[in-house]
Measured scan of single mutants.
Amino acid sequence: MDETGKELVLALYDYQEKSPREVTMKKGDILTLLNSTNKDWWKVEVKITVNGKTYERQGAVPAAYVKKL
């Protein structure tokens, strides 16, 4: 869990989004888990830093590609 009490997951593999509802992640990324009720796809929040600014993006990733921490 992070400092706000939200559950975290670890990306076990790289994943490139294939639709606007998904998010890209790299192996080793730590993501915030938002919903894991679907056994195949979990909704997560990814933090992306671009030019020193951090953005948050929500989307789905394959459940088999992440592990709860």
Results as ranks from 00 to 15, higher is better:
Lys39Ser: 12
Glu22Asp: 04
Thr24Glu: 01
Thr32Arg: 14
Thr37Asp: 15
Asp29Leu: 05
Lys26Met: 08
Leu33Phe: 03
Glu7Gly: 11
Arg57Val: 08
Val44Tyr: 02
Leu33Met: 02
Glu17Asp: 04
Asn51His: 09
Thr54Phe: 08
Asp29Trp: 12
Glu17Asn: 06
Ala60Asp: 15
Ala64Ser: 13
Glu56Val: 15
Tyr13Met: 11
Thr24Cys: 05
Glu3Thr: 14
Lys26Asn: 06
Ala64Cys: 15
Val66Ala: 00
Tyr13Pro: 01
Lys43Pro: 02
Val9Ser: 01
Lys26Ala: 08
Lys27Arg: 11
Thr4Cys: 15
Ser36Asn: 07
Thr49Val: 13
Leu31Glu: 01
Glu45His: 07
Gly28Glu: 01
Lys18Ala: 10
Pro20His: 09
Trp41Asn: 01
Gly5Glu: 13
Lys67Gln: 12
Val61Gly: 01
Gln16Asp: 13
Lys47Pro: 05
Tyr55Lys: 07
Lys6Met: 11
Ile30Ala: 00
Thr32His: 08
Asp14Ala: 06
Asn35Pro: 01
Leu12Ala: 03
Val66His: 02
Asp29Met: 13
Val46Glu: 01
Gly28Trp: 04
Arg21Cys: 15
Glu7Phe: 11
Thr24His: 02
Tyr65Leu: 14
Asp2Val: 14
Lys47Ala: 09
Val44Asp: 00
Arg21Asn: 15
Asp40Met: 12
Glu3Asn: 14
Val9Phe: 04
Asp14His: 05
Trp41Gly: 01
Gly52Pro: 01
Gly28Cys: 08
Ala60Asn: 15
Glu7Lys: 08
Glu56Gly: 12
Gly52Arg: 02
Thr49Ala: 07
Thr54Arg: 06
Trp42Ala: 03
Leu31Ser: 00
Thr4Tyr: 12
Gly5Ile: 12
Ile48Leu: 10
Val44Ala: 01
Asn38Ala: 08
Leu8Glu: 06
Ala63Gly: 03
Val66Phe: 05
Gln16His: 12
Thr49Glu: 11
Lys43His: 15
Asn51Tyr: 07
Trp42Gln: 00
Trp41Gln: 01
Gly52Lys: 04
Asp14Pro: 04
Pro62Cys: 07
Gln16Val: 14
Leu8Asp: 02
Leu69Pro: 01
Met1Ser: 12
Leu34Val: 11
Val9Lys: 02
Asp14Gln: 03
Val61Ser: 01
Lys67Thr: 12
Leu31Trp: 03
Glu3Gly: 14
Val50Asn: 08
Trp42Thr: 01
Val9Ile: 07
Val9Cys: 13
Gly5Asn: 12
Val50Leu: 11
Glu56Gln: 14
Val46Tyr: 08
Glu17Ser: 15
Thr37Arg: 09
Thr49Lys: 10
Thr49Gly: 04
Leu10Trp: 06
Pro62Phe: 07
Lys6Leu: 12
Tyr65Met: 12
Ala64Arg: 14
Lys39Leu: 10
Gly5Met: 12
Ala60Thr: 14
Asp14Tyr: 04
Asp2Arg: 13
Leu31Gly: 03
Glu56Met: 15
